[in-house]
Write a protein that binds this DNA or RNA. Structure first.
Lengths: 136, 136
DNA sequence: CATTGCTTTTACGTAAACGTCAATAACACT
DNA sequence: AGTGTTATTGACGTTTACGTAAAAGCAATG
């Protein structure tokens, strides 16, 4: 009843190849239904794909992403799992906060570089000003 | 005159293996001097390593990191290179801003999960409340 | 009805980033 | 002189995340 998608629909929408989608299925990230032999993706699959791609941008492995999904679907699990996962989450949070800082620093660096480049490109002369080393 | 480091000094400090450091040397990220056959790392190498690891955390490949270093050391290059690089920087900036948003979203997700986990662990009963699907 | 287009599975290939020996060499003791 | 630690250079292995090519099945379309 709700909308469905073909493999190339989603591939195109998210800028990945169909191979990638099949690979993600192999890895258990999406579980499209079948129309005979053809894959049919649900809105849920679409959401998962979106989440998976975000995970990837953040450096999660496909395995880790699958773990997250599994734990998201967990609903009736046991204490042990939750405890383990709680620890994993904490580690990830620390990493993400580090990453947030990294991003800020890098954005500043890039802004600096960009203006440097721009200056050099506009005032196409006064050629001898070396670039400083921004260490720390 | 300024401080130097052995390969395992830096490996330990940054939590990587010596193999990694040699690999980074192969990839042109660091260029330690030699005492006979042994590697001697300068503060400059140390800084580079630090920057390289930050780059890695942000998803840069070793090749891209090397490019950044080369362009950092550039000082007397030609217009073409600068223009090309300017474009690359723009792309990266866009990616990083995306990444910043990703991090924020994911941190919120994690905070949500964490409190969920905590609730379950403290009030070890009232077992039947499924987890909602936070899509978008 | 043959071609074009999209799909499927199977399977080998590959690039990146190291891991993991192995064999060897240089010191540091004791 | 022997033992241990840390270093070196190969060189092959491994994991992840797909790429790519082959062979084949439906479906619409000229």
């Amino acid at each position: 009843m709700s909308k469905t998608y073909t493999i190339s629909d989603l591939a195109q929408e998210f800028g990945v190849t169909t191979r990638t989608l099949r690979h993600y299925e192999d890895q258990g990230l999406v579980t499209p239904a079948r129309d005979g032999i053809n894959r049919i993706y649900s809105p849920r699959d679409r959401v998962r794909l979106k989440l998976a791609l975000r995970g990837k941008r953040l450096g999660f492995s496909l395995g880790e992403i699958r773990e997250l999904f599994e734990l998201h679907d967990l609903a009736g699990s046991e204490r042990r799992q939750l405890e383990e996962f709680s620890v994993k989450l904490e580690r990830r949070r620390t990493q993400l906060e580090q990453q947030r800082e990294d991003v800020e620093v890098m954005l500043n660096e890039i802004r600096f570089f960009a203006t440097q480049c721009q200056r050099r490109l506009t005032e196409a002369d006064t050629p001898k000003a070396p670039v400083s080393d921004s260490a720390a």
